[in-house]
Design a protein around this nucleic acid. Structure first.
Length: 282
DNA sequence: AACTGTCCCTGCAAGC
DNA sequence: TGCTTGCAGGGACAGT
């Protein structure tokens, strides 16, 4: 599940394999991937343009083009971007293929592969962003791109009456956190996922702030988390290894690695499976 | 504001 | 063994 650290790793990969390259042709297999506009709009918007940068905001990848338009890519659950040699055999569920120039030995194509088809690609005019990709304007603070200081986090939490995990997952508050990093952050901060956000002491806010930045930083450093089922890899095919540092995610029923004296429990918060230690987290 | 449920889709695992 | 069913998950959205 690509979350902020995985998307950031993909962004860095795109700087190596896509930025500065000219898109000579575009193939769209599945129309669903370009559902926000159309196959024709993506092909017309990308063909004969050069990608000038690779940016990220939350889980959104944003690539400005020399045409003045911008390419937005969201990987959602199972999307992957893979650099490949021109003409290489494509894996199942390859929905979009960008042909790049100059073609290199290792990459003449960039594939968008997405088994569950929740991901999407769209080319939009930045001047019409609020109409064409309105959710970008509603995204909350990105802890890495914008920075997030402790006082800002404190006021965001104070304004919320919902439960802590739901607040962390809300992309309008803090952008980029998904299920894995919400659970790992809350564990490190020793806070229950169902704590009301506006009841944290300033010491607890400090722990949450430190844990959040630490988890994201370490996960980016590790190239993200590659789980058994999703097989997330970066554009150059490398998997992440932050999963070996997971303390609670996916460990329900197993002994807590922090206290060694309680088992990780599973609950549901904000409609998402949640794993946490009832002894460490309060 | 905040909660729940629904939808989209596929792969995998569990149950029959 | 082979089928069916259930579940997971990001995020928008509708309904309460």
């Amino acid at each position: 599940m690509p979350e902020l650290p995985e998307v950031e790793t993909v962004r860095r990969g795109l700087e190596r394999v896509l930025v500065g390259r000219r898109i000579t042709a575009v193939e769209v297999g599945r129309e669903r991937t370009v559902r926000r506009t159309s196959r024709e709009a993506l092909v017309a918007g990308l063909t004969a343009t050069t990608v000038t940068a690779a940016r990220r905001r939350g889980k959104y990848l944003l690539c400005p083009l020399d045409s003045g338009d911008e390419l937005m890519i969201h990987l959602r659950m199972s999307g992957r971007l893979l650099a490949a040699a021109a003409g290489a055999p494509r894996p199942a569920h390859t929905h979009v293929v960008l042909h790049l120039d100059p073609a290199t030995d290792s990459s003449g194509e960039l594939w968008f592969v997405d088994p569950r088809t929740f991901g999407e690609m769209v080319v939009f005019d930045p001047d019409r962003r609020d109409v064409e990709v309105p959710e970008l304007g509603r995204l909350g603070v990105d802890p890495v791109v914008d920075g997030l200081d402790r006082d800002t986090l404190a006021s965001l939490l104070a304004a919320r009456r919902g439960r802590l995990k739901a607040v962390l997952l809300d992309q309008h508050v803090v952008a980029g956190i998904g299920n894995i990093y919400a659970d790992e952050t809350l564990h490190r901060a020793r806070l229950r996922p169902d704590r009301r956000a506006d009841t944290l002491s300033s010491r607890e806010v400090g722990r949450l702030h430190g844990s959040l930045l630490e988890v994201l930083e370490e996960a980016i450093e590790a190239g993200g988390s590659t789980l058994d089922d999703t097989q997330y890899v970066d554009p150059e095919g490398r998997h992440g290894w932050f999963q070996v540092h997971h303390l609670v995610y996916g460990r329900a029923g197993q002994r807590c690695l922090s206290c060694g004296r309680a088992d990780i429990v599973r609950s549901v918060e904000a409609g998402r499976t949640t794993s946490w230690c009832p002894r460490c987290q309060r």
